[in-house]
Structure formats: C-alpha cells, structure tokens
Simulated assay, not measured.
Amino acid sequence: MRSSQAGTAQLNETIHPTRRLAICAYLSEVVEAEFAAVRDSLRISDSSLSKHLSTLRDAGYVQLFKLADGGHSRTWVALTKEGRLAYEAHVQALRRLTKS
C-alpha cells in the first residue's frame, strides 16, 4: 500500500488550486487564447483571472502578450513549454493518486 504523502508529493502546488488547474486545462487544448475567452469559459472575474495568471507567469508556466486590434490592445495567454510539461505531469500525478 502506498502512503498518501508519496502520492501528493508529486502534485504541483502552483497548478493544483482549482482555478489554476482549470486555466491550465483550458490552455492545454489551444496554442493561445484571448484573455476574455479564458475568463468567459471559466466564468471568473478579470481580477481573479489576472491574479491566477500572474502566479502561473511567475512560475514560468504561462506567457501573456498584447496585440493591437483597431486602436486598443487585447491580452493573449499561452502555456509555455515548461507549463505544458508541468500540467501534464500534474495530471499524471492526479491519475496515479486516484488509482491508489
């Protein structure tokens, strides 16, 4: 029998909170997404999404960039290579944990 500590030790504490996990799941399905599309899909406020994206950016898991669109800029978000790998590893750790 495996100890629960061994199973949770592989979980990524940056990605694991529900909102950040949902953001990574959404972004894992696309190359990049507009901030508003992520916000609307996850049904969270601008400020909440900004806070979670900042945490993920600080960890090197997402990149944010602005593109001008007819006089105003739009923010786009993408998982970095490191972010994709960290998300995939986290999902695998969750699968192992739920199979124990």
Rank of each mutant, 00 (worst) to 15 (best):
S3A: 10
S4K: 14
S4T: 12
S4W: 11
S4H: 12
Q5Y: 00
G7E: 15
T8N: 09
Q10S: 06
L11Y: 07
E13Y: 01
P17G: 05
T18D: 08
R19D: 06
L21Y: 13
A22E: 13
I23C: 01
C24W: 00
A25I: 09
A25P: 02
S28T: 01
S28I: 05
V30I: 11
V31A: 10
A33Q: 09
F35W: 11
F35S: 03
A37Y: 09
V38E: 02
R39W: 06
S41P: 02
S45P: 05
D46S: 10
S47D: 14
S47L: 14
S48G: 03
L49P: 01
L49R: 03
L53I: 06
L53C: 03
L53A: 03
A59N: 08
Y61S: 03
Y61M: 12
Y61I: 10
V62H: 03
Q63Y: 06
L64A: 00
L64K: 13
K66A: 07
L67M: 07
A68N: 10
G70L: 11
G70W: 07
S73W: 07
R74C: 03
T75D: 06
L79R: 12
T80M: 11
T80G: 04
K81I: 05
K81A: 04
G83W: 09
G83R: 10
R84H: 07
L85P: 00
L85E: 12
A86F: 04
E88G: 01
H90D: 11
H90I: 12
H90T: 07
Q92A: 12
A93Q: 11
L94S: 04
L94P: 04
L97I: 10
S100G: 08
